[in-house]
Amino acid sequence: MKLGTVLPDQTRKDVERRLQRGGIDFGGFVFRLALVSCLVFALLVLLVLVADVFDRGFGVLTDRGLDFLSAPLRTRADEAGIFQSLRGTFWIGVFVVALAFPFGIGAAIYLEEYAPDNRLTRLIDVNIRNLAGVPSVVYGILGFSIFVKAADGFFPGSVGDHAGKTTAAAGVTLAVLVLPIVIITSAEAIRAVPREIREASYGVGATQWDTIRTNVLPYAAPGILTGTLLSLARALGEAAPLILVGAVQGRLGSRTGFFEPEQLSEQFTAMPITITDWATKPANSGFVENTAAAIIVLLVVVLLANAVAILLRNRFENKRAGR
């Protein structure tokens, strides 16, 4: 690219004019101010959002404390709690960790380390990037017509109307939803591993797998961890696909405890679902406050995962830069 052709004549005239005039760069100052105010606006909205939610919901948490966390879904606002929602969100997280992480990292390893440069690889690559852009509600359809049916057959005990609309089906759906994100972020982290390290490993007679296992993955681990944490946070906040998979929005019988795996073959709800359900109840029913309280709990979980991921990345970026 020739540099001379890129600068339009306009620029040169502009420069000449300014040189002759001198003085303060008023236009530049305004431009800069406008740019800063974009970020400040984002920051302000974020603060307003958090303040609004805390203003409404903090009272519920301080008044009811553990009761709010351990009570089941009820029709009266002052008795209703988020026990089952937390349980559903927890198990969805388990599925994401158990399915999306290994398969996503595995696919990333294939793409970065093994894949030959051919049409199939390019197809997979484009496909993954497109999957990352498919609306989450469409994944709900996938969950509804494939995973719910699969879960129906998978758990011999579950029969009737709710057959298959289980925690397991929801978990698999959200694991599939975040799979492309896990692949893309992991692949980026693996790509950043310096060539020297691979060469050193191959140079002493390590096989490709030895090299990946003992050098590439440890080096890429912080980046992979960051990406996986972000995708976990994304999965825990998703509501739309769960609605299609058949999350329960009203009352939900609670037969199992928090950590009992029997829950996998049971009907489910989750934090975002409960928030959706409560948010649309009449304004003076007391549920708006409950919604805000539930949002605080969800934000703590999700933003914690995000914050850890961001901190981790910054720390390692500094370390790599030798600071």
């Binding site: 959002l49 409404r56 972000l230 906040g237 928030i275 959706t276 999700v302 933003l303 995000n306 910054n314």
Partner: peptide
């Protein structure tokens, strides 16, 4: 940059139901 970038990242991490609630109630 190090201070301001996380603002956007936290915004990106907000679940859409939370923003939905904010849009409806605020």
């Amino acid at each position: 940059r190090k201070v301001l970038k996380p603002v956007l990242e936290i915004l990106a991490g907000l679940p859409s139901v939370v923003v939905g609630f904010f849009a409806l109630r605020w």
